[in-house]
Design a protein around this nucleic acid. Structure first.
Length: 416
DNA sequence: CGTCCACAGGAATGACGGGCGG
DNA sequence: CCGCCCGTCATTCCTGTGGACG
């Protein structure tokens, strides 16, 4: 077969003759539907709270929380977009700015994108935070706007950077003359309140809206709304739909998860050239998504993080299934030597382990061995085959996958 | 019942490449 | 070009600690 024929076949499945999808974009979670089922309550609350801006008054600050995939972002964007168009009818200058704090990353960049959104251009580095904040403030004040700032995934920023950003923002109104600012903070973490300065907390949560997880039935409804646009008639079995809803419901009622499952299941079915998505495709999709997540995560690691993973991998092979910090560092040191790289300090490796734990590649648990100290038991959360597969393709440390650390052969022992 | 191991993990600090305004 | 500040990564120094052992 000629190569172009292979390609033709591959393309065809995507373009012309898909018997599965009508419009798969609808299943992406950044797609904003016209209708948000089972969120009427929250839409109403949010709408009532921000309504005052239509009469030129500042609205209360709002604190929104709920787990991932419960519709917080969708509802907020939905309501605010509608508010903006309404405001035009009322001739009020209302603007909102949506910022995802986890993607934006630092206070500086948050202020920088705030500046951007009001048309003040700032360099992406080089200025002091105070300077950027001042520019934002003066720029905003001269624009005479009712400005609504949405800070999504705000917990990510606060846990790593503290609440200075929020403190500045909650006080900004005192320094504005002709503009007003309202804040909407969105958090996935209910315990976020504990991290906040009480002054910030009281200011931010003038209103609170809680998003409860969807149950399986609700997820089913959400999915079936989109299925009609996304899938061809009869291309999705009822069983597959229910399974997606059930699996996502089991995982804290995450609609995003449900949509992903549905989309990937469709893609799996498509690749198998079947005409209808069945439950088995959903099961397959589940594995597929997880595998992808892990591969991406592994690939994106820095050299030293990979070395840490590899060290645990080797300890694993030597029958140490739950390695402790000291052992890992020993192997890690040897691997660095093999590569001709200067090893990082144990302190640094310790935070790398914590980061890997947070991504979910590892599971780390602090334990005490009494007389024999206090340490961390660390276990891989990924199959060894997958690690071998990904790291063998790494041009720098590929060869270390087969390497046998000397420090392990010395005291080869059974462990648990 | 105190000791003391083997670390955890916080705080302060520094090196570095990038980019500003003047 | 300079002096300054940025974020990021890393080091150094440090205090804290659960519980088996003696």
């Amino acid at each position: 077969m000629k190569d172009t024929n292979i390609l033709d076949e591959a393309f065809e499945k995507f373009v012309g003759n898909s018997k599965i999808f009508k419009d798969r974009e609808v299943l992406r979670h950044d797609y904003l539907p016209d209708n948000l089922p089972h969120r009427e309550e929250q839409i109403k609350r949010l709408g009532e709270t921000i309504a005052p801006v239509l009469k030129g008054a500042r609205s209360s600050n709002i604190f929104i929380y709920g787990k991932t995939g419960t519709g917080k972002t969708a509802v907020t964007k939905y309501v605010l977009t509608y508010l903006e168009t309404k405001a035009k009818e009322f001739n009020e200058l209302v603007k909102f700015c949506y910022i995802n704090c986890r993607l934006t990353g630092t206070e500086y960049r948050v202020f920088a994108s705030l500046c951007q959104s009001i048309g003040v251009s700032v360099p992406f580095t080089g200025l002091s935070i105070g300077e950027v904040f001042d520019r934002f403030r003066t720029g905003l004040d001269s624009s005479k706007t009712l400005f609504i700032i949405v800070l999504d995934e705000i917990d990510a920023l606060i846990k790593t950077r503290g609440d200075i950003l929020l403190y500045e923002l909650t006080r900004i109104n005192e320094m504005l003359h002709s503009s007003k600012v309202s804040l909407i903070g969105i958090s996935n973490d209910l315990r976020l309140k504990e991290f906040l300065d009480p002054r910030v907390l009281s200011s931010l949560s003038e209103e609170e809206i809680v998003f409860t997880p969807y149950d399986a039935g609700e997820l089913r409804n959400i999915l079936s709304e989109r299925v009609q646009i996304a899938f061809c008639d009869g291309a999705l079995s009822d069983g597959a739909l229910s399974l997606c809803a059930a699996l996502a419901a089991a995982e804290h009622g995450d609609a995003r998860r449900a949509l992903d499952l549905l989309r990937v299941a469709g893609e799996v079915a498509e690749r198998e050239s079947s005409d209808v998505v069945v439950e088995e495709h959903v099961r397959e999709a589940e594995k597929h998504i997880e595998r992808n997540r892990v591969v991406e995560a592994l690939r994106g690691l820095t050299l030293h993080s990979k070395l840490v993973v590899l060290s645990i991998f080797h300890l694993n092979r030597a029958n140490v299934h739950r390695a402790i910090t000291g052992e890992i560092y020993e192997v890690y040191n040897e691997l660095c030597g093999e590569l001709g790289v200067t090893p990082l300090t144990q302190r640094r490796v310790s935070t790398l382990v914590n980061e890997l734990d947070a991504i979910g590649l590892l599971n780390a648990q602090v334990i005490s061995m009494g007389r024999y100290g206090r340490t961390k038991k660390i276990r891989l959360e990924v199959t060894r085959t997958l690690i071998r597969e990904v790291l063998s393709n790494d041009n720098r440390l590929g060869r270390l996958v087969k390497y046998e650390p000397k420090c392990l052969s010395k005291h080869a022992r059974g462990g648990s």
